[in-house]
Amino acid sequence: MWDYSEEVKEHFYNPRNVGVLEGANGVGDVGSISCGDALRLMLKVDAESDTITEARFQTFGCGSAIASSSALTEMVKGMKLDEALEITNQQIADFLGGLPPEKMHCSVMGREALHAAIADYRGEVWEDDHEEGALICKCFGIDAVMIEETIRANNLSSLEEVTNYTKAGGGCATCHEGIEEILTKVLAERGETLSPVVKQPEPKAPLTNLQRIKRIETVLESIRPALQRDHGDVELVDVDGKTVYVNMTGACSGCSQAAVTLGGIQQRLMEDLGEFVKVVPASAMKRA
């Protein structure tokens, strides 16, 4: 049995905005019937104000697919189109009090339907850029396609590298067999075999503590302008091994999206440093 939040159950048992929307001027049909989820999102957009005045849906799918569709229609009503396009799948999941990792794709489907419907209204062609594979890493919600593509694009050859680039396998570590299987397959195409020896990270001159902290600061500096635009900010508090402590300030402090932002900062830092780091709010720091 899935561990669905009360919000998911509520939106499933009593879905909002169900059925055909007469006079819809933006319709998005997305999903995959092989996976068992498909969604038609219908929008009525007021041309003058560029605002979504009504939204309805029809969904073939499981409890969380129906709940995600219902949540999406509630979220977008009254939004300007450009605003609506900013909605992330994580926001849809957050609206529902979170989704199990296996079910995050339901929120992705919601975001895609929204993009498709808006593209339809604007007379544009929406192209799906997202191919979904079997879920490998349940901690970070990384699927097989993402892992395989990352291995190819970056010429990766070890489990550690895959974890550094995608986060997959960096949590509970129980999916390592699955990751190694994908690695073995891609390496075989390159005429290589997976080394049975756990490879240590690149011997490129390790950063000194000072260099490393400066690198972290540089990355944070580059992120700050984007946060400041939303009247927020971030500052580095401490670095302890693989843990980077930051303070989210201004509008970021207490924002429901703070967790998402932290995830984004972590991703940027990992890409830059080429190692796994964890970004946590300074409030979680153990005080002496």
Binding site: D29, V30, G31, S32, I33, A38, L39, R40, Q58, T59, F60, E112, A116, W126, D128, H130, E131
Partner: peptide
């Protein structure tokens, strides 16, 4: 989306064929 009223949408596979 495959259903209309009290029966399947006319030609259900064509009535709804989502992207991907």
């Amino acid at each position: 989306p495959y259903w209309a009223g009290d029966k399947p949408a006319a030609n259900p596979e064509a009535a709804f064929s989502p992207t991907y």
